[in-house]
Amino acid sequence: MTHLFLTTVAHTRTSPVRHSFEHRSCSWLIDLADVDERGRSRGLPVGLRAVVRFRSRDHLGDPRCGWLDNVARFAATHGVQLGGGSVVALTNGRTLGHVFNPITLYWCHDAEGQLACVIAEVHNTYGQRHAYLLEPDARGVADAEKAFYVSPFNDVSGRYRMSVPPPTDRLDVTVVLHRDGERPFVATWRGEQVAGGLDLVRAIMRLPLANWLVSARIRWHGIKLWRRLPVQPRPSHRQELV
């Protein structure tokens, strides 16, 4: 099972200055069991398998191990046993030798097919990553203490509220940072599954540059904020390697 989504990502910063942006991109929803040791997804059309890769070393865990194994091991270290259940990830694929995933979401199921947890894996532009294990309620909402330096203009204080309902033919994810009774940062990740035809052609044409554009846009907005906000010290961070 591999599906391509045309997405819109929006960020809104409300404090101490207001700044917002929105851009279009592409994301893949893939079953990790379909990804082989070379990062090729069997759910992709043959012509795309050589262009789009999903490599374990681009994500959490030991780069020498399989991606699915790493996710299951991470869940187990947090007390969630998947028992061989399926894991579906929403992520960007590596194209033209580059990938950047500000966030990858994993919907992890147990052996009976029930949702056991959601893992939110966050990457920053310093080459670091951190994963949050979430146990959403019936609405798909979960809270997590912020523990990772993402923006140079935001420290690691506060608490996230994430709305992460499993995607269907539509995607609707929201991440809100709560701090001191305020909501200084809100991000949304929304989109629709590409069914085929002309929309699929347009999406595939957009794929080769999608990762480069994400990286460039983040840095461009960082430059604009650098003129207006003080840079917060970046604490040391230990990567998850389980």
Results as ranks from 00 to 15, higher is better:
residue 86 S to P: 12
residue 141 V to P: 02
residue 63 P to G: 07
residue 48 L to Q: 10
residue 8 T to N: 05
residue 170 R to W: 06
residue 74 F to A: 15
residue 32 L to D: 03
residue 96 L to C: 05
residue 239 Q to F: 00
residue 201 V to L: 15
residue 28 W to D: 06
residue 149 Y to R: 09
residue 128 Q to C: 06
residue 21 F to T: 03
residue 110 D to N: 15
residue 56 S to C: 00
residue 176 V to T: 15
residue 180 D to P: 00
residue 129 R to D: 12
residue 24 R to H: 13
residue 88 V to R: 15
residue 104 T to Y: 09
residue 230 P to E: 01
residue 241 L to I: 04
residue 105 L to E: 06
residue 41 S to D: 10
residue 34 D to L: 00
residue 113 G to D: 14
residue 136 P to Q: 07
residue 179 R to W: 11
residue 60 L to H: 08
residue 75 A to K: 02
residue 190 R to Y: 00
residue 164 V to M: 10
residue 170 R to E: 13
residue 201 V to Q: 06
residue 242 V to M: 05
residue 120 A to C: 02
residue 214 V to W: 01
residue 195 A to T: 11
residue 205 M to V: 13
residue 40 R to V: 04
residue 174 T to Y: 02
residue 168 T to I: 02
residue 189 W to Y: 13
residue 91 T to N: 12
residue 85 G to Q: 03
residue 152 P to T: 05
residue 60 L to V: 14
residue 29 L to S: 04
residue 166 P to C: 02
residue 124 N to M: 07
residue 212 W to C: 03
residue 113 G to F: 13
residue 54 F to P: 09
residue 157 S to K: 15
residue 171 L to Y: 07
residue 182 E to W: 00
residue 172 D to C: 12
residue 66 G to A: 15
residue 225 L to Q: 07
residue 242 V to T: 05
residue 71 V to N: 12
residue 87 V to Y: 11
residue 210 A to Q: 15
residue 79 G to L: 11
residue 55 R to N: 10
residue 24 R to W: 08
residue 176 V to K: 14
residue 204 I to M: 09
residue 177 L to F: 05
residue 220 W to N: 00
residue 138 A to M: 04
residue 222 G to L: 02
residue 229 L to I: 01
residue 79 G to H: 11
residue 35 V to Q: 04
residue 101 N to C: 08
residue 214 V to T: 04
residue 218 I to R: 01
residue 133 L to P: 15
residue 4 L to E: 03
residue 36 D to W: 01
residue 57 R to P: 00
residue 228 R to N: 03
residue 217 R to W: 15
residue 39 G to I: 08
residue 61 G to I: 10
residue 53 R to E: 03
residue 38 R to W: 11
residue 16 P to Y: 08
residue 155 D to M: 01
residue 4 L to G: 04
residue 169 D to E: 10
residue 60 L to P: 07
residue 237 H to E: 08
residue 110 D to A: 15
residue 166 P to W: 00
residue 190 R to I: 01
residue 41 S to N: 05
residue 46 V to S: 13
residue 88 V to L: 14
residue 215 S to N: 01
residue 213 L to S: 06
residue 237 H to S: 11
residue 155 D to Q: 00
residue 228 R to V: 03
residue 188 T to M: 05
residue 82 L to Y: 04
residue 163 S to T: 15
residue 54 F to Y: 14
residue 185 F to S: 01
residue 48 L to S: 08
residue 111 A to Y: 14
residue 124 N to W: 10
residue 95 T to P: 02
residue 109 H to C: 11
residue 64 R to E: 09
residue 51 V to L: 10
residue 153 F to E: 03
residue 123 H to Q: 10
residue 184 P to R: 14
residue 221 H to V: 02
residue 57 R to I: 04
residue 170 R to A: 13
residue 76 A to F: 12
residue 107 W to R: 03
residue 8 T to K: 03
residue 222 G to K: 01
residue 215 S to L: 09
residue 138 A to V: 04
residue 144 A to M: 06
residue 112 E to P: 00
residue 90 L to C: 13
residue 71 V to D: 14
residue 159 R to C: 13
residue 214 V to Y: 00
residue 191 G to K: 08
residue 47 G to D: 12
residue 166 P to N: 00
residue 214 V to L: 01
residue 56 S to H: 00
